[in-house]
């Protein structure tokens, strides 16, 4: 039974682990905890894994949910992680100093994978009424030649992440029919 994967990416603290956990059927694993938390919670022999979750479909198929480490020093891993992936979910933290710069970085870093598959963008930590900021993100993406879903999301809400993933899949194939 072949396994499949969806990649979640974005800067540190954007909500990748939380988003994966909200749709994972297995307890999600995180690596973006603070060093002090990791030291407290880990045994000396524990192997640290990357952000990871799992969807178990009927029939035994699995869809692995991988969160890329958010720090740029791990960017060389990203091409390894995306191989064979179905699509990319990019989470951007709107409260960071330069969220548009973050978006530009990740869109460029995953350019090849995005063009082979699809991209869906979730903007986290938006203030009330800041929905008007979404056009700014849309404008940037359209200048980059991308007309993709960009939604405000709360990474803790399964419904938000579900709609984001649905948008990703329907963007891949609007012909999908779901009962």
């Amino acid at each position: 039974m072949p396994d499949h994967k969806i990649i979640f990416t974005g800067p540190v603290g954007a909500g990748k682990t939380t988003a994966i956990a909200s749709v994972s059927d297995a307890p999600a694993v995180s690596t973006d905890a603070r060093a002090s938390d990791m030291t407290r919670s880990m045994k000396s022999t524990t192997t640290v894994a990357m952000d990871y979750g799992l969807m178990k479909l009927e029939g035994g198929e699995k869809v692995h949910l991988y969160g890329t480490p958010g720090q740029e020093r791990f960017d060389f891993m990203w091409s390894i992680l995306t191989e064979g992936g179905l699509g990319l979910v990019l989470l951007i933290d709107d409260s960071r100093p330069n969220p548009l710069g973050d978006m530009e970085f990740f869109v460029n870093a995953f350019d090849g994978f995005i063009r082979e598959t699809q991209l869906a963008v979730g903007i986290t930590k938006m203030d009330l009424g800041a929905g008007s900021r979404l056009p700014v993100y849309h404008d940037y993406l359209q200048r980059a030649g991308l007309l993709v879903p960009v939604f405000e999301v709360d990474a803790r809400k399964r419904s938000d992440i579900t709609i984001l993933l649905e948008a990703l899949f329907f963007a891949l194939d609007p012909g999908l029919e779901v009962d």
């Binding site: 800067p11 540190v12 603290g13 988003a19 020093r73 203030d127 709360d154 803790r156």
Partner: peptide, 17 residues
Amino acid sequence: RTPSEDADEGTAPATAR
């Protein structure tokens, strides 16, 4: 590298949303 301020992932600001 210093990790950026690590607010709770994915949470909205303090003001109710």
